[in-house]
């Protein structure tokens, strides 16, 4: 686990440090930079999403989704990998 997290952190740090050097980049997603770019060129711009959260509601939605998703992943992770819990279940 330590190896995995250190690998990820290293890659992220390299990315973040390098991002300080990439002045002028707009950091658009590839859907905007690639997908929507080609769609617009073909005369098929993207529609507004059916539910289009405006302002900070989208930030809130992403944070909430991340929190709930993280909680569910962590809950089952503990079920599967926590040695303490598994020993308790075995003894019970």
């Amino acid at each position: 686990m330590l190896v995995l997290t250190s690998n990820l952190v290293l890659i992220l740090l390299i990315n973040l440090v390098a991002s300080r050097l990439a002045f002028g980049a707009d950091w658009a997603g590839v859907d905007e930079r690639v997908v929507e770019h080609f769609a617009e060129k073909a005369g098929r711009p993207a529609w507004e999403p059916f539910i289009n959260p405006s302002g900070d509601i989208l930030l809130f939605a992403f944070l909430l989704a991340g929190t709930v998703g993280g909680f569910i992943a962590g809950y089952y992770w503990r079920d599967l990998f926590s040695a303490k819990d598994r020993n308790k279940a075995k003894q019970g």
Partner: peptide, 12 residues
Amino acid sequence: TPAYAMHISEGI
């Protein structure tokens, strides 16, 4: 942060 990533957007 609002995520704009790989999925094909609505109506394209």
